[in-house]
Write a protein that binds this DNA or RNA. Structure first.
Lengths: 185, 185
DNA sequence: TACTCTAGAGAACGGTCGTTCTCAGTTCAA
DNA sequence: TTGAACTGAGAACGACCGTTCTCTAGAGTA
């Protein structure tokens, strides 16, 4: 098996397991079983669990933000693009296996003990906030709106994760529309 | 030492440690050392770690919501009472040792493996949401506003926890005021 | 075929942690 | 004073987990 393929399989397995059950609850042995990559090779690719966790969060970050951008780009109208963020959240919340935001969960679990995990959570949230900033700017709306929208989105992720329902996305979308309208007047 | 006193000391120590470092990262031995209560007695009071975790979250729930209500009750005007929730968050975020919402963190860490923890997170968040509902109703505002305010508050907690700053509370307060104004017109 | 190298399976190691047990000291009733 | 019951300190136990090691089988090569 190619080394790149093995790496991919490990990251796939680790991604599913870490996200679904939490990081500390998943052992390296289980990742080996799920990925079909031997322990020896696994440790050749990722010399320690920390590094696998880091790679997991990194890869998920680009995938998550990529999917979001892809969804938003289907809309042309600047205001609709802002609201499309919440539509995307709604779709995400409804996916099978949805269990909240991976970075919020990882931060809650390891933020206090791992500076790397904490930094990655901050980086991911900053990037998301930054992205909202560009959407808001493109719509000619005041910058401070982006922070407010980010709070709505974060709140929706947390609430949807805990209650296993997509409704928070709809509430957040509605609130976002009202804030946009208020900012415009 | 009285049994009630020992219980109190254990819960104090466990509260500080669990909240500050996460639940799985804190061993029973450390709680014994921090509380000064022997392991034997600790296990007589809480036959398993799960039960101590449960008691920790339960006690924190009543304390947290009690403090919130106490702060809100200092205001008479119904609209100001709603905004006082966010003032309270701001004060809380600035406290030393603040590390986000204990239930969001616990859910991220154990929500997938412990049905009890998941249920307690839901109960706490439901109670908070319910409380916002009464404030909104007292102000003669539409019920759906409560859900939106809850999302802002949750988002502020998450963001403040990850970035160690109180600013999200101010942003959320501002957004809340705008949503209240929008709902009234 | 015989040799070498690689890689996988899983046993083994060392440490941690939840939980229980031992033992010595203390209290207190008779 | 004696003995029974309790208590605390911490050792011990058993399970788990991250990481390393061993052993064996197979592939490639001369």
């Amino acid at each position: 098996m190619d080394s790149a393929v093995a790496r991919e399989r490990v990251l796939d397995a680790a991604g599913t397991l870490f996200y679904g059950r939490g990081i500390q609850s998943v052992g390296m042995d289980e990742i080996r079983t799920a990925s079909g990559v031997s322990l020896k090779r696994l440790y050749a690719l990722f010399p320690a669990k920390d590094q696998l966790v880091e790679a997991y969060l990194e890869r998920r970050d680009t995938a998550w933000r990529g999917r979001l951008a892809q969804h938003v780009e289907q809309r042309a109208d600047p205001t609709e693009r802002i609201l499309a963020v919440f539509d995307h959240l709604h779709r995400w919340f409804g996916e099978p296996g949805f269990r909240g935001c991976a970075w919020i969960n990882a931060y809650g679990e390891l933020g206090a003990s791992s500076a790397r995990v904490a930094a990655q959570a901050r980086a991911h949230k900053s990037a998301f906030r930054e992205y909202l900033g560009t959407l808001v700017a493109d719509a000619g709306l005041p910058e401070r709106l982006a922070g407010q929208l980010a709070l709505l989105a974060e709140g929706a992720m947390v609430t949807a994760g805990i209650f296993h329902t997509g409704e928070p996305a709809l509430q957040a979308r509605e609130a976002a529309a009202e804030l946009v309208a208020a900012a415009r007047s």
